[in-house]
Every structure is written in C-alpha cells, then in structure tokens.
Amino acid sequence: MGFFSVLGDCFQILKHTFRQVFKRPFTYFYPFEDRIYPERTRGRHIHVRENCTACAQCVRICPVVAIRMDKEDKMYEKDCALYFDYTRCIFCGLCVQACRFEALFHTPVVDLSEGDRDDLIYGPDKIETLDRDPLKWRGRRFR
C-alpha cells in the first residue's frame, strides 16, 4: 500500500462524487411532487358499495381488528357501511384478498397523516371515495 495507490483510491472516490453532481436528484420535492407508486401498492382502501354483500369476510380476516361494520346503514339492497381504523391497520392486504365480490381494493394513496387521531377512522363518507380537500401551504396546493 504505497502512497500512489492511496492517491488512486482517493481519485476513484472523487470520480464517483463528481459524477453524482451532474445527475438529476434522486429525491422528490415532497409533498408538491411525489414518486409514482406501483399499481399493487397497498395504500388506503376504497370500498365499492354497489358490489358489497355484507358478507363480513373482510372483518373476519383482519388480523388487527381494524374494520368495523354497520349492517343497518344500507344504501343498496344488501350492502353495509365499513369503518376503517387507520390507527390500527397494518396494510397487510388480507381483507382485499378475502373479498370475493370485488368490493374492496387498495389504492396507491399512502399519505394519510392527520392532525387528529379521530380523523384517521375513515367512515363511509371517506372510504367510498378518493376525493379529499386539497391542502394548501403558502398559496401552493399539494396532494
């Protein structure tokens, strides 16, 4: 290990460093921009109420008891209202696999943070749609 080989190592490291300077950044200016999530991303759920048969398979399989069901609340013939508790959910995907009526899906929406714990319990009004109020910061709109 002579002086020159150490110098060689130093140059090799510097070469890598300089190469990175001219590359596009690997980071995103979150939350104004975000990466593209794959199709299978296990984010928050969406409940398609037309297809639901109130079979309760999703409630039974959930390992952390994150889903509550209200059978009284009917919009169609046999459906039910689902309440998802995102303080408990571990995004395991079992409920989506258990549903055989194409009524429950994951969506690639993963930014769920809220200021209040109670807002993380998604009732029928929130779980059946992906729309939400846009958040603004200094006049710029994000998500």
Binding site: P38, R40, T41, R42, F91, C92
Partner: peptide
Amino acid sequence: EELTGSRHTVS
C-alpha cells in the same frame, strides 16, 4: 414493492 405492494412487510 412492484411484486407485493409493500417495501418491507411483504406478506
């Protein structure tokens, strides 16, 4: 992530 939809807890 592409395969299972999750980066660590793959299930």
